[in-house]
Amino acid sequence: MDKVAINLTVNGRNRQALVPPRMLLSDFIRHELELPGTHVGCEHGVCGSCNVLVDGKAVRSCLMFAVQTDGARIGTIEGMGADGSLHPIQEAFWEEHGLQCGFCTPGMLVAATELLAEKPDPSEEEIREAISGNLCRCTGYEFIIKAIRSAAQKLREGNGAAQTESA
């Protein structure tokens, strides 16, 4: 099948590409855009490791085709933070030990970004629910939840000056 031309914004940069219609967004991001921070954990849409932001919404990039993102704004982990500084959510994950092996982390950060954009002061229950689409085998989740609560506070207190295109 012929390749399809797409035009999209990735982490604030305009990108143009010719992609096979069957190419998954996750493969496009990892292999064509060479942004390997988006991880593939199951390829059936259940683990959330491959979450990216598409027009501000957390999306499983293994369940979407690259061609569907024509005209969209994509945010990946590589685009989080600005000018070499960390985003408050990233900082909070670091401070609260919200990660161990780091494999699920990019997807978790994306889920947290979406949540905090919608709910600046989420309850613990809302945080749990928001990241329940993301599997983590290492941490037991408590410190991830703690990190998101801390990130929410940082953002509310205006420490979040370094907002990104993806957020």
Binding site: R30, L35, P36, G37, T38, H39, V40, T76, I77, E78, M80, G81, L86, Q90, F93, W94, E95, H97, L99, C101, G102, F103, T105, P106, L109
Partner: peptide
Amino acid sequence: VTRTEDAQFITGAGRYTDD
């Protein structure tokens, strides 16, 4: 002590076998 290895993992700079 917070972890020295985290900087790469929270920025997508971790490199696993498939990378």
